[in-house]
């Protein structure tokens, strides 16, 4: 039986690192699914059924977390910051003010159904979000050689916070 508190990297048999071989992840997920999915145990014993269901739940959770760079970064951060005290709500200067203004302009765009303005904002936000994500790899790499580097962790925290606010705006644009 697989232990409940095994981490997602361990479960997939991958090193605990931000850089992952996505093809390998994909292959692992597929092969493991073909091994353990409940669909293949419909005629098995109750114990086997439960085991297959439980392992599939864990496999799905691990895969969906590790596949996307942002969720992978957040997950890895949650492991690396255990017992480390960081400024949790760190943001670039005047960033909140900017987000507030963007939210207000978005209000107006949504009210007037200004499609072209909405598209442009969507594009700008995506660009910014991608820019942030491009920093993840090098920062996490730095941590691999010096895991106690609080400064780097703090920088990552800041980027992840920023990403959340941008994501919030993007979600609002795209849910309409």
């Amino acid at each position: 039986m697989i232990s409940d508190d095994i981490d997602h990297f361990e479960l997939m048999g991958l090193p605990q690192s931000f850089e992952i071989d996505s093809e390998k992840l994909e292959d692992l997920y597929q092969n493991l699914s073909l091994e353990m999915h409940p669909d293949f145990y419909g005629t098995s014993t109750k114990e086997k059924k439960i085991l297959s269901e439980k392992s599939s739940v864990m496999l799905n959770a691990a895969y969906s977390t590790l596949r996307e760079p942002v969720s992978r970064a957040r997950y890895l951060m949650s492991i690396l910051t255990r017992g480390v005290s960081l400024k949790k709500d760190d943001l670039p200067e005047d960033f909140l003010q900017e987000m507030f203004s963007l939210q207000e302009s978005l209000d107006e765009m949504l009210e007037s159904c200004d499609q072209s303005a909405l598209c442009k904002m969507n594009e700008d936000l995506l660009k910014r979000s991608n820019l942030i994500q491009s920093n993840f790899a090098s920062l996490f790499k730095k941590l691999e050689t010096s895991p106690e580097n609080t400064e780097t962790l703090q920088q990552l925290q800041k980027h992840l916070n920023t990403e959340r606010y941008l994501r919030r705006l993007l979600d609002r644009i795209n849910s309409k």
Binding site: S33, L34, H37, D39, F40, G42, T43
Partner: peptide
């Protein structure tokens, strides 16, 4: 597949 007749594909 559910009846145990095959294992050659999986629907997620």
């Amino acid at each position: 597949l559910l009846a145990g007749g095959r294992r050659d594909f999986l629907l997620l």
